[in-house]
């Protein structure tokens, strides 16, 4: 009787990479809806455009590499990249921004390095930074977060595909406002800026967007898709920096801790970018260092950086570079050995 010879173990946990990716996509949905609530349908247009172009580029490269297209598309990693990119781009940016970003993410940042699992940098962040550096104007034009005056779908499509200008739809983001504080104290700034005034915790719209991403992240944490180490240490580090440099709300203040936790891409970064397993440190100890360093860098770029209001993408890319180095210094101690393998041990 011919029996199949398979080595142990003979069972495997049901959770697959594809499932993990799908769970991540589901977890972004609260944040996506929050964004759409405050910024209008442009968010979904971005997501759709990014998804289609990312899947297309992924299929194209897999085809060129003569692999099974379906097998690779099924792992949904391209879709996750598309969602992360789509959520970080400003709504109503021209369509070619999204498509070229997708190309950059999938082809340059991922497939050219060997595909899933082999890319050293987070593809969505590489694309975002590439776009931000190349096309600073459309990349920094964010709509005013106002649930009562969102742009209609036809107007949005006109803007995205035919570059029809919409008057007065955009305004500086809160992080910009905080950076160019015109030498005002925090109190004066809050009184002067309606976006800040109307906010409950940290400013209109953005606080809810961030809370929605936080909810999605907590869901993934509950599902044990990732460990708490990297996101929590990043948030704590950011918080600590904000406390240290709060300066009693003077004109030199970098903003309150709550402001930093609930502004810009903080929560999206903490739970969806920093937790990207491929490009982060491996061990839990390493992830704490990795997350904390990102938190500190985000604050530094936000408050003292020149030109760029938010720093999540840059900070993540920096630490992507450092992740192998961190891994090297945070090897665990193997059972039965007296000490962990030191990075200073001579490589054989």
């Amino acid at each position: 009787m011919a029996l199949l010879t398979i080595t142990s173990p003979h069972t495997q946990r049901a959770l697959s990479t594809g499932q993990i990716m799908r769970l991540v996509i589901y977890a972004t949905l609260p944040g996506a809806f929050a964004l759409a609530y405050f910024f209008g349908p442009g968010v979904f247009v971005n997501l759709l455009l990014a998804s289609i172009s990312c899947l297309f580029f992924e299929a194209l490269v897999v085809k060129l590499r003569r692999r099974s297209i379906l097998f690779y598309l099924r792992d949904c990693s391209a879709l996750v990249t598309a969602f992360l990119l789509g959520l970080s781009l400003p709504p109503y940016c021209p369509w070619w921004i999204v498509v070229s970003g997708s190309f950059c993410a999938i082809v340059l940042a991922k497939q050219l390095y060997g595909g899933m699992g082999l890319n050293p940098f987070n593809p969505a962040m590489v694309a975002y930074v590439m776009l931000l550096v190349s096309f600073p104007l459309p990349m920094t034009q964010w709509a005013t977060p106002d649930a009562n005056h969102v742009i209609g779908i036809s107007q949005a499509l006109d803007k995205i595909f035919f570059n029809q200008q919409i008057d007065g739809y955009s305004s500086a983001t809160l992080l910009d406002v905080m950076k160019q504080n015109s030498s005002l104290t925090l109190n004066d700034l809050y009184q002067k800026e309606p976006q800040l005034t109307s906010g409950l915790l940290a400013g209109a719209g953005w606080e809810w967007v961030n809370l929605a991403f936080l909810a999605g992240g907590l869901f993934l944490l509950y599902k044990r898709i990732f460990t708490w180490h990297a996101p929590i240490s990043m948030l704590l580090a950011l918080c600590a920096m904000a406390i240290i440099f709060y300066d009693n709300g003077s004109s030199n203040s970098g903003g309150s801790p709550l402001f930093h936790l609930l502004s810009g891409a903080t929560m999206l970064g903490a739970f969806f970018i920093v937790t990207d397993p491929v490009t982060s440190a491996v061990s839990n100890k390493g992830r704490i260092i990795y997350g904390a360093a990102i938190g500190v860098l985000v604050y530094i770029i936000r408050v003292w950086g020149k030109g760029y209001p938010d720093g999540v993408a840059f900070a993540v890319l920096f630490l992507n570079l450092a992740a192998p180095f961190i891994d090297y210094y945070t090897s665990p101690r193997t059972y039965g050995h007296t000490k962990a393998r030191s990075a200073l041990d001579k490589e054989p």
Partner: peptide, 29 residues
């Protein structure tokens, strides 16, 4: 009950293996 194993996908360096290892090894490496 014990289906044949599915084809292996690329390692995404998730580190779940390292958390499961009772000998504190680095399965990924």
């Amino acid at each position: 009950e014990l289906p044949p194993p599915p084809p292996a996908q690329a390692c995404i360096r998730c580190g779940i293996c390292a958390e499961a290892c009772p000998a504190s090894l680095l399965p990924q490496q």
